[in-house]
Design a protein around this nucleic acid. Structure first.
Lengths: 240, 240
DNA sequence: TCAAGAAAACATGTCATACAGGTTGAGGGC
DNA sequence: GCCCTCAACCTGTATGACATGTTTTCTTGA
């Protein structure tokens, strides 16, 4: 069985697998597939591309790892809904291999979230406003249990990103959540007194109120203040 | 040969491959590997994880597709330098499956680039400043050949992102370049007269000058104006 | 002694085959 | 007409084989 090595004029990597990945993504584009639509079976793809099932499988598997497609036993692969999948892994990888610092992540988050919060103030539905407010309330209610505060904190920021109604913002912010989880507690601990901790939680309530009031400027200011305090906490903790 | 299915307490996907991916990334973290460092061979990993080479290969291949590791024939896989790899594929996928609109991408770019340009004005080295200026010059010089203008345009924005000295910004902006390539010409064509086109190119020169002058406010203003004009051009072209 | 070159050891790339187990739809029994 | 069973199809994993690329080792010759 002879493989066609010359289909892709500008192939990134040599190798049949890369070509197969290209072919599959191109298939999605050409066929105009959307989330949920089924792809050809592996056997089918094997015939189309004239390569072994091994190659096709590795290609499918790669796309699945990036969450561009969904795979599960017995059923054919389908086009996936937008998902952080790969993006969060790239960020995590960058941080764990020390190619990205926590400060750099916070700068990006600050930049983006000053925008998402303003958009949220302008575009949020009532349900979204209620959800955001609820997370702020839950943070206050559980202020004695850092882990729970953290999860609601993260959910709070993700909810704001969703309320911006721009999935790209949502995608990026959610991709950072993993890094946030690994540094959040450190920032919390530098807030020595309970008053400081409550003040930090109240910062979230301020943001929520500004969103509900539909005041983008105020919301952005509160968000900026919140990040400035977070970065200061990281600095105090000696995080590079 | 019996596989150990219970290593990972919080496995995301069922299946040995997902577990293997987790194990490999964890290996990188635990061993403290950085870019260029070698990973165990497939055979080695096969023994460690007690799974078939098939599974290990699919895991390696997935990480390679996300550009978290580098693979090539004959040599062992190594930890990769930070690369857009996966991120650009996620964005492309979102756009081609119509889960992300071009406008949404532009909003994100505007948000981020107003920051990168300000940072670049503050932090750019002389070499970086010269590079940015050079791209602006090349745009002017080739104003008759849209494709060349486009490539220099993209390089211009990427250079600014690099000059921000925050690789995360650089990563995100570069990940959008693919989408930009697919819409740029449309925006160009709506600029009917040569004067409009030159005005657009001069906008880039304005940005470059502000960066060289070390004026972050001015640079951000020029960048905002540039994006406003670009979005208007897309609107005029009827891009949703 | 040492350097160049050959060979062995090791690594990945691809293929073929096999079988277990999940999913789905067709057909038959009621 | 409904439910059940089973066949057809699909993915998940394992194994073995061989081509080809890379590194290490050892031999050989100067």
């Amino acid at each position: 069985m002879v493989a066609n090595r010359s289909m892709m004029p500008e192939e990134t990597n040599p190798g049949l697998v890369s070509a197969a990945i290209q072919a599959i993504t191109q298939y999605i584009r050409v066929e105009g597939l959307g989330p949920g639509d089924l792809l050809p079976s592996e056997a089918d793809m094997t015939r189309r591309l004239s390569v072994s099932r091994t190659v096709v499988r590795e290609a499918f598997r790669s796309l699945s790892a990036m969450r561009l497609i969904d795979m599960s036993a017995g059923r054919r692969a389908s086009v996936a809904k937008l998902d952080i999948g790969a993006m969060s892994m790239v960020i995590e990888h960058g941080v764990t291999t020390e190619q990205i610092s926590v400060h750099q992540v916070y700068d990006v988050r600050r930049t983006i979230e000053m925008r998402t919060v303003a958009l949220a103030a302008l575009r949020r539905s009532d349900a979204e406003a209620a959800e955001i407010q609820e997370y702020a309330r839950l943070m206050r209610e559980n202020y004695r249990t850092p882990e729970i505060v953290m999860e609601h904190d993260i959910a709070f920021h993700e909810a704001i990103a969703r309320a911006s109604h721009n999935p790209v913002f949502s995608l990026i912010i959610t991709a950072f959540s993993g890094v946030t989880r690994r540094t959040w507690v450190i920032g919390w601990r530098t807030r020595a007194s309970v008053e400081d901790q409550i003040k930090m939680i109240e910062g979230h309530a301020d943001i929520a109120r500004a969103i509900i009031a539909g005041n983008p400027q105020l919301a952005a200011e509160h968000m900026a203040a919140h990040f400035d305090k977070s970065v200061k906490a990281l600095n105090d903790a000696g995080i590079a």
